[in-house]
Write a protein that binds this DNA or RNA. Structure first.
Lengths: 342, 342
DNA sequence: GTTAGCACTCTACAAGGTCGAGTGCTAACA
DNA sequence: TGTTAGCACTCGACCTTGTAGAGTGCTAAC
């Protein structure tokens, strides 16, 4: 374990590097932080810290920068958990109130808020709809040859599509089909709605195969849409403010990677346990972000984890701030969502 | 009017500059394009072209680049209208088929397609819903204290929101309110639904003020959502490939400008006449994009102009390609949308 | 254990030099 | 009269060199 002075010096290095993005020298530390010792002493301590792997040097005679191990120690042992300032909390709550009318907007705005506050890229993974249940479907009238199919989930998600009424079917036929399907499927989670059940329904209804095929197709289509989990991204332009992305090639390859949405969703999904998690540098499994850090948190509705929010940025990120914001989201996003869902 | 040789030289300069982004010298032209004259002659012609304002020089002894006037002449007189290659058309049609299930996805994917093909930023302005009419609203059951309000327009747009049932109202009350509102408002364009009409309805219904206030609030809220026209953006990352955006500051200020969505929507709305329009450099009214060019086109459904698609990029853009793609969208986007709407 | 001093290292930056692409001008040519 | 070759000139891109400054490690003294 590091002694008190080494901890102070490491903290000073990480803090300074986070705010300036410049390597820190012994003299700078002595000047800025009142440790009561001379630069020479600090140099000796820094040599030790480097040997222990907490900091590194880009070249002889440059200052030191924190290593991944250094950041890890900083996050685990040096950072005191901070609350977000009241003023900022009020701002966020107000933001939600003003800008969100739809559930989708909540996710969208959450991504925006996170990236704005942290000056980093934010990710919001939307609850997998597969986890929620089918409530009912309904055909709404539109005109002679078309109808609006509406599928409602028990969480209040509503999906709709204008479809052609299959030839030979009256609007009443559609109603009958809907009623029957609802009786059989209501309450089932989307995961459990298998083709086999749909086949059963067909047999029970004793209706013309063609007609049923159509209805089934519609439902399947709705299911596909529903199952498609969504990822909201925010603040890709914030990237440009970060000195580590001065070089445009780096920005480009990074953004290209972000476009692989599935991949990102995968990274996030890994987290099944509750709370705020920090992954630093090469702790990340995906090589594309191995010089980045990610802080992620789950959010819950009625105690059940339904999704993940995360902030992705250079390892030199303001962990204190990012963690406190995500802690806030962890605790409050569910509440905001509650207005729109069960 | 320019003589044939001057036209050839101007064309050579614009073509080369579009593909290389480097100023073009007399020798390069003589080498690459077989004009049958020596560099010295070309130099004389170039001096004339510069005097006439079609090309300019960044500094003595640099090659020439086209001026806004030069591009304008190129677009108007030198560019022969080209069709998109069959192969590309097939690709696009296939793309739509595979990736679009919802109307929104059509816009989203259109933006993606445009930016991918042209390597520039694309904008898709969605039809203003104010132009279409209210068809009906309906309350769908959800649970004891909440209901789903669905508003349907005559173009098949469906907007929904889970709302609390106001205390004191039964689900039947809601149905009655909906019926009455529908009877009065059906067929009216959203533009024409004024508060005064809503007041009238209230008087006719002779229901408790509070109850009606609630229903009215809901409708107004739906209206706000409906009226909010949407702008889809694509290819902001493509920007980074363009040499004119090597400098990261430029990218940043440009992207910041793009975030002012309203402003962009305004730029697009200016176009009321049909067809493909090219705006070059300082022909743009908004100072933020005065060193950019924009090519925009309307798209129609059943002959009626409903929205605009556009490509925005540096003045050095491949006008031929961009214009042919937008010409294609002008003619075909309506067809694609027809599947989802009237 | 801490500190001052010193020689050393390395980067960032500015100054100067060279190269090459491009120009305008002039005189000769068809 | 239009075209071409030749020449001096200009200017950015690139390389080299020199210098200032920040930082280091080591040693000897406190």
């Amino acid at each position: 374990m590091l002694d008190k002075r080494k901890r102070s010096i490491l903290q000073a290095i990480v803090d300074d590097y986070i705010s300036t993005a410049e390597p820190i020298g012994s003299r700078t530390i002595a000047r800025k932080h009142d440790l009561g010792v001379s630069p020479a002493t600090i140099r000796n301590e820094m040599a030790d810290l480097e040997l222990l792997g907490y900091i590194e040097q880009l070249h002889t005679s440059s200052g030191r920068i924190p290593s991944a191990k250094g950041y890890r120690f900083y996050v685990d042992s040096l950072l005191s958990p901070t609350q977000m300032p009241e003023r900022e909390i009020a701002l966020i709550k107000n933001w939600y109130q003003e800008k969100t009318r739809h559930v989708e907007e909540v996710f969208q705005e959450t991504a925006k808020i996170l990236s704005k506050i942290t000056s980093n890229i934010s990710l919001v993974l939307v609850p997998q709809v597969t986890q929620c249940a089918f409530k009912y479907l309904k055909f709404l009238p539109f005109d002679d040859c078309r109808t609006i199919l509406v599928v409602v989930t028990d969480t209040g998600f509503v999906e709709n599509k204008v479809i052609d009424i299959p030839t030979g079917l009256s609007f009443n036929d559609l109603q009958r089909i809907a009623e029957h399907i609802n009786r059989r499927l209501s309450g089932l989670s989307f995961e459990n709605i298998e083709l086999s059940i749909l086949r059963e329904i067909q047999n029970e209804m004793l209706i013309d195969v063609d007609l049923f095929e159509t209805a089934l197709g519609i439902l399947k289509q709705a299911l596909v849409v529903e199952k498609n989990e969504r990822l909201y991204l925010g603040g890709t332009t914030q990237l440009l403010s970060q000195p580590e992305f001065k070089n445009i090639e780096k920005v480009k390859s990074f953004l290209d990677m972000l476009e692989e949405e599935h991949l990102l969703a995968n990274i996030l999904q890994k987290q099944k346990n509750d709370g705020v998690i920090v992954t630093i540098g090469d702790e990340n499994k995906y090589s594309g972000i191995q010089d980045c850090s990610m802080v992620q948190a789950t959010y819950r509705i009625d105690g059940q984890v339904v999704g993940t929010v995360a902030v992705l940025g250079p390892t030199r990120m303001d962990y204190g701030k990012v963690m406190s914001v995500l802690e806030f989201m962890h605790n409050h996003l569910g509440e905001v969502l509650k207005k729109y869902k069960i």
